Every structure is written in C-alpha cells, then in structure tokens.
Amino acid sequence: MSRRAALDRLLPKPLSYVVVADAVETPAARRRRRRAVAATAVTGAGLLGASLSTPPGSRGFYLSTAAVAGVWTAGGLASGPLHLGWIESRDATLRRPLLTPVATGVAAFGLFYGAALVARRVPVLGDAVARVLRFADEGDDRLVLATTLANGVGEEVFFRGALYAALGPRHPVATSTAVYALATTTTRNPALVLAAGAMGTLFGLQRRASGGLQAPVLTHAVWSALMLRFLPPLFRRPASPAAADTDPHAR
C-alpha cells in the first residue's frame, strides 16, 4: 500500500462532508418524534436552569442534574430510532467513530483552555466561568464527573439525536445549535451559553458528517472530562487572610 493510499484510509472526510440523509420517516413517525422533542425541550431546559440554582455539592444538585440527564436521554430515545453513525475515510472505508472524535475532544479542550486564559481577564466572563466551576470545586469529584458525563451523553441523544432528526434537511446544524444555546439560557450564565453555541456547532457538524450519535457523544465526553480536570484551578480564588485566620486547617 502506497503512502497516499494509507493516508486516505486513515484520514476521515472533513467536517464539511454531508452524509447520505437518514431514512425517510412516515408522517406519523415524524409527528411522534416532534411531539417528544417539544415536550423534552421544555422540560429539560426548565430542569437545567433549576439544577444550577442549587447549592454546589448539595444533594439537590446531584438529584437535579441526574434528572436533567434522564430527561434528555429518555426524551431522545422515546422520539424514535437513533443511529450511531460511521466515519467515512477519504478512500470511502467506513468504520465506527472512535479515534477521530476522541482527538477532536482533546483539540476542543485545548482551544477552550486558551479561551479560558483570556476569559480570566474579562470580569463578566471570568465570574460566569467561576460560578460554574464552583460545582466542581465544592462537590464530590466522582459524583460531579458522573453527572457531567451523563448530561453530556443525554444532551447528544436529544439535541444531535432526536432534535436533529426531527428537523429534517432544513439547516439542522444551525437550528439544533440555536435550540441548544436557547435551552442553556435558563442557567442565566453567559459562559455556558457561549460554550453551547461553539460546541453545539462542532457536535452538529460531527452529526452531519457521520450520520449518527457516536462521534458527538465521544467528543462531548472527552471535552467535558478534560474541562473538569484542568479548568477549576485557573479560576480558583486564593483564600483571603481573614478566612485563613479563622480556618483551623489553614494553620
């Protein structure tokens, strides 16, 4: 095998690639999917806003975030059949998405880490990011990771699964991203809304290029795990001298 042929077999087609459209659904199946999508979007967005209004590390936080993940996942699955998708190489070889979406998640984290270094210097964004990261700093690491990953999977099942399929061929990437960002506005956190817009676009392009959920799910999971691991120290505020004087553990 020549070097060029080996590269064509290894490298995926670009994100601008559009996979062959999903199978055409019957009008009844399409109506059922759209009803499930509408009900899930309203319920999930409301619960999402409520979950970030609970105290970090509290039982209410873990229960509410688990409920949000459950709503996204159950609503997405109830809407109708969903597909895992395929990565098509440049030589037309098909394989399940694995290495490419993992690498994409790492690259996305690198870009966000660089953006976070800038956001620290912008008071509005820095404070917004710090408010979100309090849930990681003040919570149980294992529970925060579990609920974060569950929500990442649930969001992909719903937004890049059920919602994307319900939209049909009419600008599904842009529309699903807009709905994703709109749902995030219930948190009243501008940093989360901006992240939803940026990452929603990436996840939507992955969905369009692969025809299924596996690529955006893996990218979302890798990106989320790295954000939880490396971003909190950037926004951790040093304890004040007064707090150190009253904290017996600081001595």
Rank of each mutant, 00 (worst) to 15 (best):
G161K: 10
T40Q: 07
L167V: 00
A128R: 04
R121A: 02
R229Q: 15
A225G: 12
V173M: 04
L47W: 02
R134L: 13
Q206F: 03
T104V: 13
T100W: 15
K13R: 15
Y164V: 05
F230K: 00
T147D: 03
A174R: 06
L218K: 10
D247S: 01
T186I: 04
E156K: 05
M1S: 11
T184F: 13
S176D: 06
G57V: 04
R30Q: 14
T26I: 03
L84R: 08
D8V: 01
V37H: 07
G85F: 00
A92T: 00
E88L: 12
A50R: 02
D140M: 03
A162C: 08
S79M: 04
G200C: 02
G70I: 02
V71M: 06
P14A: 10
L194F: 14
L11D: 11
R236C: 08
S89N: 01
A69T: 01
G46Q: 09
A23H: 06
A67K: 01
R35Y: 01
R96C: 06
H249V: 08
N189P: 12
V24A: 06
P232S: 11
L77R: 07
G76F: 02
A74R: 05
P248N: 02
T201K: 02
G154C: 02
R236P: 05
A103C: 12
A198H: 08
Y17M: 06
H83R: 03
P123W: 01
R96V: 14
L143K: 13
L234T: 05
T93K: 09
V20N: 00
S79P: 05
R208H: 01
S79A: 15
L125N: 03
L149Y: 08
D141M: 10
A39T: 13
A166M: 08
T201M: 10
G204V: 14
T26P: 10
G85S: 05
G105W: 11
T148F: 14
S64C: 03
Y62R: 01
R95V: 15
R30P: 08
T177M: 14
G152Q: 09
T104Q: 10
A39P: 05
